[in-house]
């Protein structure tokens, strides 16, 4: 499957400055593993050591947050648009 992956500004230096990548994979987990293999600098920023999604990364397939459609097992189809955005969070302590 070939899809488009939109890269957030903070991760672009790790992928040669590109804003989008054409990616392969039948699931989000496969796509992110393939990207990590191609760009080792993103290791640890997309997937946790146990293969789950990084805690502070939001991943969307088209309009859907993948946490609600299977997480790393969320299916990816041809021409899907996958968007990565860092979680925006904090607190008072």
């Amino acid at each position: 499957m070939s899809a488009t992956l939109r890269i957030p500004t903070v991760l672009r230096p790790a992928v040669g400055g590109q804003a989008t990548l054409e990616v392969e994979g039948a699931t989000i987990g496969e796509v992110l593993k393939n990207v990590t293999a191609q760009y080792p600098s993103v290791t640890g920023q997309l997937l946790a050591e146990d293969g789950s999604l990084h805690r502070f990364l939001n991943v969307y397939v088209n309009d859907d947050d993948v946490r609600y459609i299977g997480g790393v097992d969320a299916p990816v189809k041809d021409d899907d648009e996958i968007t990565l955005l860092p979680a925006v969070a904090g607190g008072c302590h």
Binding site: N58, L85, V88, A89, G90
Partner: peptide, 9 residues
């Protein structure tokens, strides 16, 4: 706090 991921996208 955490921004709603839908609002973020």
């Amino acid at each position: 706090y955490e921004i709603d991921p839908k609002v973020l996208l």
